[in-house]
Design a protein around this nucleic acid. Sequence first.
DNA 1: GTGGTCTAGACCACG
DNA 2: GTGGTCTAGACCACC
Lengths: 137, 137, 137, 137
Amino acid sequence: MAFELNILPGGGSPIFRQIVDQVRLAVATGRLAPGEALPSVRAAAEKLLINPNTVAKAYGELAREGIIEGQQGRGMFVAPPRQIYTKTERVRRLTPMADALVNEGLSLGFTPAEVDELFQQRLAKAKPPSPSGRNTP
Amino acid sequence: MAFELNILPGGGSPIFRQIVDQVRLAVATGRLAPGEALPSVRAAAEKLLINPNTVAKAYGELAREGIIEGQQGRGMFVAPPRQIYTKTERVRRLTPMADALVNEGLSLGFTPAEVDELFQQRLAKAKPPSPSGRNTP
Amino acid sequence: MAFELNILPGGGSPIFRQIVDQVRLAVATGRLAPGEALPSVRAAAEKLLINPNTVAKAYGELAREGIIEGQQGRGMFVAPPRQIYTKTERVRRLTPMADALVNEGLSLGFTPAEVDELFQQRLAKAKPPSPSGRNTP
Amino acid sequence: MAFELNILPGGGSPIFRQIVDQVRLAVATGRLAPGEALPSVRAAAEKLLINPNTVAKAYGELAREGIIEGQQGRGMFVAPPRQIYTKTERVRRLTPMADALVNEGLSLGFTPAEVDELFQQRLAKAKPPSPSGRNTP
DNA sequence: GTGGTCTAGACCACG
DNA sequence: GTGGTCTAGACCACC
């Protein structure tokens, strides 16, 4: 069972970002294991009906983050887990997303407790599937 | 004590969005009560050193959402509370943001417990100001 | 005196990489101070006689590394110094370049002492100009 | 004990370049003496699990540089030492690599002393094997 | 005016 | 076959 990419063409976020997020999540949860191959740029572009450059941009970003590696002429592969960012930087990247969730939740009329409840549900959903992700290095 | 807007120019999100979010949150938590006046477009633009068009765009979006109302020639005022979205719709809007937070956190190498900890911190920060907002209508 | 970019069109490395390296060096040595503006994408593209996309790609990479930041609609600016990579990651990135230098030096017929001498000269040349670079945060 | 090639497939540099560099370094440090035979194209390709074309390309480049010579039907052999480039030319070739190392090191946030330390480590690693290479002609 | 995204199509290096 | 680079030209969001 090979890994498959999906996009929502008209969607909220840019296509290349949807691809990046999808691969990052798959790797983080172990659904894509180190060493596993990703669809080739051309193959993915054909399947998703988008331009190969868009896929290449997504793959390039993932490679720069150390999530995947290219092997000359053979394709892109999931890299072994590696912690590249400092704790400070990782917090700096995650904090605005937490703030956005809190802000949007309260603005929609939820109580803090309700926002927390919804968050706990989604957190629990993502936790179990991976006994060997890159979560706790 | 009048309501004051603040922005971080070098930024994560567009300025007009920062204003929208700030007002929405202030209204949701009761820090801005129904009937209260917002700073005029010109005053806000001067104070924040930004283009008046940017403030006007933010106010326009808030007005379209029914959060604030313009009274001809007198300025913008907080509208009476009105629950626009059903519970289901509100959950549908918030869930993807929770998922994004969890996704990004795990991808950065945080454990679920660490993501939760950071979220709790940011949630606590937004909670205290109002015991009687429009949270539970 | 504004900052100016230069490229060698037929050169060894890709154009976008030349731009990235040039800006990174200027920032590291303090020749570009935090808060200072970079040439706009379009202006740089015109001056260098290259495609705007090429400049944009270089700026994008610099932004992802935290070297520069974009301010909505105003351009790109040098970001305040920030250490984003772990020590391990920084060593991992620099080591192959040191190996390449040693390898090439010895292959060219230099003695290790001669390679060292040349390296010391170039290191000394880059050191003095900046009393306030991002060298020792 | 015959000379052995090694490659790191998942890599920083192209495989054919890894082979070229490895042979050049071995010859420069005397680990491969003039007249000594290299593994045949076919043997090397089998051992390294790579395409024979890749080995042939590497050997071709080494032959063009005068490092090795092919003897019809008998294989490739290390050529007698020959200094191709003048001192000036050799310095001209090595300097940009030293500059790149210094540039990258400082940009990553290392102090000059730290860059020097890492360089000394890598230099020491390549030095010992040969007291009588073609280093000082 | 600014940068960001996407498409189309070309050429190159590598295996 | 693979990915990497560059060009050309379009449209959008933001200020």
